[in-house]
C-alpha cells in the first residue's frame, strides 16, 4: 500500500488512504466458514489441520455464517442443498466472497451428467475464485484464499459500501429460498 511516513513536532505519523488501512485489516483476518458438502471438505479440514495450518495467514474457520467473510463451496452441490447454501450466503454480512473449490463446485465435474447435481456454483452464487482439482490439495486452497486477499487489497471498499452497488455477477434466482 502507498503510505508516507512524516515527521511531526510530536512524533511521526502515517499519511495514507483509509481504504488501504481497512483493507490491510480485512485482508489479514480472512475468516472462512466451516462448511463442506463432499469429498473436498476432507481437504478443507486438512487445510485447517496441523500441516497446512491456514492460521498462519489469519485464516481461521468459523462455524456460523454471521461471523465469516468467505464461503468455500467445498464439494458437490445438489439441488436439494442449493437453496440451503443460498440461505447461508444471504446470512453472511457484507463484504463477502465465494470460492468454488474443486471441479464439482466449478462446473459439476464428474457429476455433470447426474440428475441431482447443480452444474456449477456460479449458477446460483457470485463466485470470486475457482480452484481446479478433484479434490484440490490444501496448498491450492490456500492459494485460492490468497487470491481473495489480493482482491481485497485492491478494493475501494469505503466507496463501494457508500454507493451500495450490487455485485453484478450475482445471479438473481427467484423462488430458490
Amino acid at each position: 500500500m502507498d503510505a508516507m511516513v512524516e515527521q511531526g513536532p510530536e512524533g511521526s505519523f502515517v499519511l495514507g488512504k483509509v481504504d488501504d488501512l481497512l483493507n490491510l485489516a480485512r485482508k489479514n483476518s480472512l475468516w472462512y466458514m466451516l462448511f463442506g458438502t463432499a469429498c473436498c471438505a476432507i481437504e478443507l479440514m486438512q487445510t485447517g489441520g496441523p500441516r497446512s495450518d491456514a492460521d498462519r495467514f489469519g485464516m481461521v474457520f468459523r462455524a456460523t455464517p454471521r461471523q465469516s467473510d468467505t464461503l468455500i463451496l467445498a464439494g458437490t452441490i445438489t439441488y436439494k442443498m442449493a437453496s440451503r447454501i443460498r440461505l447461508l450466503y444471504e446470512q453472511m454480512a457484507e463484504p463477502k466472497y465465494v470460492i468454488a473449490m474443486g471441479s464439482c463446485a466449478n462446473t459439476g465435474g464428474l457429476f455433470q451428467e447426474s440428475y441431482a447435481v447443480v452444474n456449477g456454483g456460479d449458477l446460483f452464487l457470485p463466485v470470486d475464485v475457482y480452484i481446479p482439482g478433484c479434490p484440490p490439495r490444501s496448498e491450492s486452497l490456500i492459494e485460492g484464499l490468497m487470491l481473495i486477499q489480493q482482491k481485497i487489497e485492491k478494493e475501494p471498499w469505503l466507496k463501494k459500501a457508500w454507493t451500495n452497488t450490487k455485485n453484478p455477477k450475482d445471479p438473481q434466482i427467484e423462488g430458490l429460498l
Binding site: T78, M81, S114, A116, V117
Partner: peptide
C-alpha cells in the same frame, strides 16, 4: 437425508 444425493 439426501443433501448429498449425487445419483451415483
Amino acid at each position: 437425508i439426501g443433501y448429498l444425493h449425487r445419483g451415483l
